[in-house]
Amino acid sequence: MRIIGLDTSTATGGVALLEGDRLVGEYTLNVQRTTHAERLMPALERVMADAGWDPTAGVDGIAVAIGPGSFTGLRIGVVTAKALSYAWQAPVVGVPTLEALAYQAGAGRGLVCPLMDARHGRVFCAAYTCDGDVPTPRLEARLWALDDWLTALEELAADGSHPQDAAGPAGGRFLFIGDGAEVHWDVLVQRLGSRAGRPPVGFRTLRSGAVAALGALKLRQGAADDPAGLVPLYLRESEAERKWAAQQKHRSPS
């Protein structure tokens, strides 16, 4: 089974090829001075050519990180995935970016806490427990104030209802992953001390290989998306919509 993994959620981004259970190609884009618009397709062409995958032969599936992340970046990845799926008649699956980060963090280390920086003290984050399969959500993915999310994490760990929480064998440890963990690492350590951990260098931001692998799992479970309807998981309304909603609230007679 040949699966393409695409990630354009952040400036890191990447393209990966998964053949069965083997990662056979993976490029990190790191678009600091360029854009995903310019880099994604050339990278896909290159990685496919290097792996000996013939584009005319198509693939068995396309997995794409759907967000949260940069709005424009997400659209480039999602639309590319939709259009590849449409043109190859291959199934496509959207993989939430935070879930892919949790999957990448791996199994058995307490609560896995992916976070992506959203500026102004806010983070896109969630919490999962992982056992090597599709991560199990423990706190829903959304935009949080960093402090509130940390409080929610501590409460969750203290409740002990899960073997990997405080009462469990992993002893209430937290594994932080994602660019938000890099930005806010000092705060995390200050608050949680030695209970806060992070993956080794090179695995702290999303690898497109993880997107491909988690996508392959989901496809095997029959979780393909409709290519026409697939949209990014923005987790945040556009500014115009936020202002409009606020105005309507203000105007309503109640």
Binding site: A37, M41, G58, T72, R75, I76, V79, A83, A87
Partner: peptide, 18 residues
Amino acid sequence: GSLLVGIAAAKAIAFARR
């Protein structure tokens, strides 16, 4: 942002269909 949607779709279709 609007242009990029059409461009991403066009590139992917052209790539996949050569």
